[in-house]
Design a protein around this nucleic acid. Structure first.
Lengths: 334, 334
DNA sequence: CTGTTAGCGCTTTCAA
DNA sequence: TTGAAAGCGCTAACAG
């Protein structure tokens, strides 16, 4: 691998000049630039990104923390973030936190050790205090799907409460009165908010929230199935079920089928997130669209604008509104 | 951020000694080591990974190329690779190639520029020659889901032909004679191999392969749906459909339902890959298990053993055998 | 077992 | 507009 030194010799100029034409920010005469460029191509020169990072104190890398590397939700998010950032020549180091405090901290430490210029975090388990403390350090911290007031301009999130509200409202509008709810793990903010929206919609319709119709799940398909079975066994009647994400809705559908419950005739189901496979379920899942790709894009754009000082990047919005996607799994109450 | 220099001063030793206790490979007296350790914690010292990389000419990072960051197949793969490598303190830089030659090359260049110690590639579009050339360079190249004879010990792949064979064999064993097939894009090796397996099974059963029952898809759900519609419109009769991956099987199921075809009563469907959501489809998808997690693990272990000289890592196998997962979407022929 | 001393390849003042 | 030179923070001979 040719080094900058060899290029400078070949071009008959100094190291500094080569560096200047590489970075293009300082004026270099046309003639000199061409000599250097020629030498570079002849030698097949590639700048050493590591040396550049050390000297410039900028790693050109951004760390991304997600809960898991598989799953439609995070797939969509990683996909947009990587796309935007790589186009800008930045690289993305991805780690998984598995919704566990210790693992999230370790992953963040890891990214910090690699001297990432910015961290885009989908952190679920660590505390606000920890994140605030982190934000005081060298790396810029951006949060996805979480809002902390003291750093709200670096937070990109969905109005989960509204989403929960819309889901329940849709069921109510279809005439359902007995609505069961399988929530996400309630230690997570989004799970709490979605549930709060559900309760608000019920209250507006003068329906008292029935604790017996609530099951706490963990956002996985299996818990959707278990949740439905539990509700069914408890013999409380309900004609609609709202699941706090599509994965659980899918699990619930499968379980319902096995119990001989016809969907949507006997039971309407509504999901949340509108992940790719939602429309391939049978019946096609009515769900709440969670604009995760837009949030990823917003976070990446923020980094480009504020960390790398790129011009012409539109200032992203922070709050994203979910919306109902009406498909086949919700029908009028019998 | 404290530097090694400050630590050495605080501990009253030389730079080199601090470096030694950090890396732990050279003997340092217990007393000195403790002094250094103490100074480190007091200063909250964190080694600068970038400087380490530059000095040691080892970035401790491995690049991972996948076709897309979303989708169950790649999710599973990234997940295992990241898990194994991060446990070993290596970091994973992930890029997407989108099955496009130009984009794959760019992504690989990008990883090379970052001086990754090894590249684990799920490359679909670039040529064997290109990869062989690449393997001559500084970074070690590992291939997933692809075999090139000249570097077969660095290739980890499924026996796709066998998989295609097993799928078709299962349909045949269930009494089906007219078996349609929606393939992956035939410029991809795995798609070709799966199809070859299909044809071998037919030949063994003395059934002539009928070109009219073959549709070329692109591994996406939408193409599964289109493929089924196309086959249906062509009015060729078939009682079983084999799809070259689960996503297309899912799309085909949805499309069949819309055309009023009962599954599996009127049409049996078999997928390939056994991704997570396959068992949540309705009916539950009979499919071929593709041990993608094991391949990811194997690739990561190979890197640990051969690139980072870790001891005690079992030598991974290169060829992985797929197997039939019988669920509900395949039944006996009418 | 420990210290000295060159670098690793590049950026960035500071002068010229 | 260009060059000289001092680092960035760490590793790795080489001596002692």
């Amino acid at each position: 691998m040719a080094t900058i030194y060899e290029v400078s010799k070949a071009a008959g100029v100094s190291l500094a000049t080569v560096s200047r034409v590489m970075n293009g920010n300082v004026r270099v005469s046309e003639r000199t630039r061409n000599k250097v460029l020629k030498a570079m191509t002849e030698l097949g020169y590639k700048p050493n990104a590591i040396a550049q990072s050390l000297a410039s104190n900028c790693s050109n890398s951004v760390g991304l923390l997600v809960s898991a590397l598989h799953g439609s939700f995070f797939g969509d998010m990683m996909s947009t973030v990587e796309d935007v950032l790589r186009r800008a020549g930045k690289h993305v180091v991805i780690t998984a936190g598995h919704s566990d405090e210790e693992q999230e901290k370790q992953a963040i430490e890891f990214l910090l050790d690699r001297r990432c210029d910015a961290l885009i975090l989908h952190a679920e388990a660590v505390s606000d205090e920890y994140l605030l403390e982190l934000a005081k350090g060298d790396a810029q911290i951006i949060l996805i799907n979480r809002k902390i007031d003291a750093m709200s301009e670096r937070c990109f999130y969905t109005d989960n409460e509204l989403g929960g509200y819309l889901a329940t409202k849709a069921a109510l509008d279809a005439g359902h009165k007995d609505i069961a709810y399988i929530s996400g793990p309630l230690f997570k903010g989004d799970a709490k908010e979605r549930l709060a929206g559900h309760q608000r919609a019920l209250a507006e319709a003068n329906i008292t929230f029935n604790d017996a119709l609530l099951v706490e799940g963990g956002y996985h398909e299996a818990e959707g199935a278990q949740g439905l079975e539990q509700l069914y066994r408890a013999k409380h009647k309900f004609s609609a079920l709202i699941c706090a994400n599509d994965e659980m809705a899918s699990g619930a559908m499968t379980a319902a089928r096995e119990l001989g419950i016809a969907i949507p005739e006997q039971l309407s189901i509504i999901g949340f997130d509108n992940v790719l496979f939602a429309r391939y379920l049978y019946p096609k899942l009515t769900t709440i669209d969670n604009p995760i790709r837009l949030m990823g894009e917003a976070a990446a754009h923020w980094v480009l604008a504020h960390v790398y000082q790129q011009r012409g990047v539109a200032e992203p919005r922070n709050l994203f509104a979910p919306s109902l996607v009406a498909r086949d799994s919700l029908v009028s109450a019998p």
